[in-house]
Structure formats: structure tokens, C-alpha cells
């Protein structure tokens, strides 16, 4: 016969989905938040994002080529770009660039590539990068520029974040902190101090809706995190409204939404089954409030996610999807 036929096992069709489609889908969902950060923090934000992305992509390429001697290039799948953007979102826009590059090296070099690259890492690279920077350079990492002053130089004024104020409130009887806090609405649109990507909650919600619509993520993790934070913070608030902020405030402040939507849902480091994802989300929400309320750091989201990343394999072992026919058996 003239042409040779191809033989393979079924199925013979594919959904057309691909790794890079998912990665770029997340990047598209990040665009609103990115634009907001440019608006609020101006040139600094653009510069930080660009440097972060470029260094993440460069490190991945270099490690692949010179250390792993992989001929296959993985930088086109968009995962390194995504790590770069998320890392940028987690730092103040006035961070010294050399610190940022160090963070990118840690995120890609140590957290991602040492485990074998895409799909093998135990921890979310961007978050681990942030945690590394936060511990190594606490001052630079918590000096927040005041938003709304586009095209400011990096040496501008700094502002306390709402979460720092919350902490102050919980720790002391100095109630003056309350007066300094912005209202919930301005928190929603992002008119507060904070890391680049985490300030505008509305933009993050738009991104969340986009990812749900595209089927990139499911609702389980973000919703269970937010619901847990809301309920747990609500209970604390009911018990002692003076020291514990109201739950709406907890939800819209800091990196909670950013973490819940973009970080905790990271494919590689989150559990596989729906049940497991809810357990994971609830645990993250709980840990976040614990750290925020009683811990040393004002923000607990990134640590909560990293802690739960470590538990993901365990969750995968114990929380299996519901097998077909199981209902009948019981």
C-alpha cells in the first residue's frame, strides 16, 4: 500500500488543551491585576515585573542548558514567565532589583529546577521565592510605597499596610490604629499599601472569573480558603470586636485573594481530588488567620500555602476522589 498508516492506541483525538495554553491562560487572568499595579505604583511596578520575568526565564533556560544539559527547552511553556509575574506581585514595587533577581534565582534554581523542573517541584516557586526574600531581607520586603503616585521615584514615601495596622490592633490596646485604616471599599479597588499584585482585589476577582470560565481552575480551593477565613475571622470578631477585625476586612486585605486565586491553585503543588482541594483550602484559610492574628508576621498567606504545599502528597494519599459505584456499596 502506498502510504504507511499510523497505529496507536485509542483515544485518537485530543481536547487540544496544552500546558502552555493553561499557563498563558493564567497570565491573561493576571492582566487586570498587573494593569492595576502599574496604575498604582507606576514605573517601579513595570520595571520590577519586567526584571522578575526576565530573570526567571533566564535562570530556567540557563539551568536547563548548562546544568541539566537538556536539549528540550521548557521556557516556551510559560511556566517560568508565570513564576516571574507572581514573584513580582509579591514584592513591593520599590524593592532593590538585585534582591529581586536573587529571589528569582531561588525560586527557579532552588525550588523548581533542583526537583526536576516543571511538574516536579514540591513548593510553589514564586511563593518560596517570596518567603526567602521576606526572611533574608525583611526591611526591604516590608517597606511599602504609597499607591496612587504613579511615576514616583523608588525613594518615595512609604505606608503601613492594613495588615500591619491590624496586627497592631490585635497586639495592643492602642486603638488609634483603627483610625488609620482605609475602608473596605478602597481596599477592594486597591488604594492601599502593599505588595504589587495584592492591592487591587477587584482585578484579582476578574482574573478568577476568567480562569473559571476557561476551565483552568475549579472553584474548590479559592472558595474554601475565603470561606474559612471569613468564618474563622468572623468568630474571632464576634468574640472580641475590639481586637479582631471584621471578616470582610480580613478577606479583602493583604495577599489573601491573590494567594487564594493564583498561588494556592498552582497545579503542581495543590492536591488532585476535589475533596483534597477543599481540605487544603480550609487548612490554608485557618493557618492564614492563625498567623495573621498570633504570628510574628502581619501576613500569613504565603506561609500558610507553603506549609500546605508540604502536606499535598499526604492529602493526595488520604483523600481519594469518590469512586464510581461507591455510593451503592454503602
Amino acid at each position: 500500500m502506498a502510504n504507511q498508516l499510523t497505529v496507536s492506541l485509542s483515544p485518537h483525538v485530543h481536547s487540544g488543551d496544552s500546558v502552555s495554553k493553561n499557563m498563558y491562560g493564567v497570565l491573561i487572568a493576571l492582566i487586570p491585576a498587573l494593569l492595576c499595579s502599574f496604575i498604582y505604583f507606576g514605573l517601579g511596578a513595570i520595571l520590577v515585573t519586567a526584571v522578575s520575568v526576565a530573570s526567571c526565564v533566564f535562570f530556567e533556560w540557563a539551568i536547563n542548558k548548562y546544568m541539566l544539559k537538556n536539549s528540550q527547552t521548557t521556557i516556551c511553556d510559560g511556566s517560568a514567565i508565570l513564576t516571574g509575574v507572581l514573584l513580582a506581585f509579591n514584592v513591593p514595587s520599590n524593592i532593590p532589583l538585585w534582591i529581586l533577581i536573587l529571589g528569582a534565582l531561588f525560586a527557579i534554581g532552588v525550588v523548581k529546577m533542583t526537583f526536576g523542573g516543571l511538574g516536579c517541584n514540591l513548593f510553589n516557586p514564586a511563593l518560596a521565592g517570596r518567603a526567602f526574600l521576606l526572611i533574608s531581607f525583611p526591611v526591604q520586603m516590608t517597606t511599602w510605597p504609597v499607591p496612587g503616585q504613579a511615576f514616583m521615584t523608588v525613594d518615595g514615601e512609604t505606608a503601613a499596610t492594613p495588615l500591619a495596622l491590624l496586627k497592631q490592633m490585635a497586639k495592643s490596646d492602642d486603638l488609634s490604629a483603627i483610625d488609620q485604616m482605609p475602608d473596605s471599599l478602597s481596599m477592594l479597588i486597591g488604594n492601599t499599601g502593599g505588595a504589587m499584585g495584592e492591592v487591587c482585589e477587584l482585578a484579582i476577582l476578574i482574573g478568577f472569573c476568567y480562569m473559571l470560565w476557561k476551565g483552568i481552575i475549579t472553584w474548590h480551593i479559592p472558595v474554601s480558603i475565603v470561606a474559612t477565613v471569613f468564618v474563622f475571622a468572623g468568630l474571632l470578631h464576634l468574640a472580641d470586636p475590639l481586637h479582631y477585625a471584621n471578616p470582610v476586612y480580613q478577606v479583602v486585605s493583604g495577599g489573601l485573594l491573590l494567594g487564594a486565586v493564583f498561588m494556592a491553585t498552582d497545579y503542581v503543588t495543590s492536591p488532585m481530588s476535589k475533596k483534597g482541594q477543599i481540605v487544603y483550602g480550609v487548612a490554608i484559610g485557618f493557618l492564614t488567620i492563625v498567623i495573621r492574628t498570633w504570628g510574628a508576621y502581619p501576613e500569613g498567606m504565603s506561609f500558610a500555602i507553603l506549609i500546605m504545599n508540604a502536606f499535598t502528597p499526604l492529602i493526595n494519599t488520604y483523600f481519594k476522589p469518590k469512586r464510581f459505584g461507591e455510593v451503592v456499596k454503602k
Binding site: S18, D77, C120, V268, M272, P321
Partner: peptide, 27 residues
Amino acid sequence: DKEARRAEAQPCIRCAKCVGACPMGLE
């Protein structure tokens, strides 16, 4: 020819889409 060829396999990114698609609730 084009439809017939499988795309090259990449590493598993643990996205759980197969878990969501499996009609028997397997992993």
C-alpha cells in the same frame, strides 16, 4: 496525517484534569 499524530508528551503538571474527567472516579 496531521490529525493522526500524537503530540509529544510533556511532564505531568499535576493539574488534576484527568481526575476531573475520569467517569469512574479514578486517578
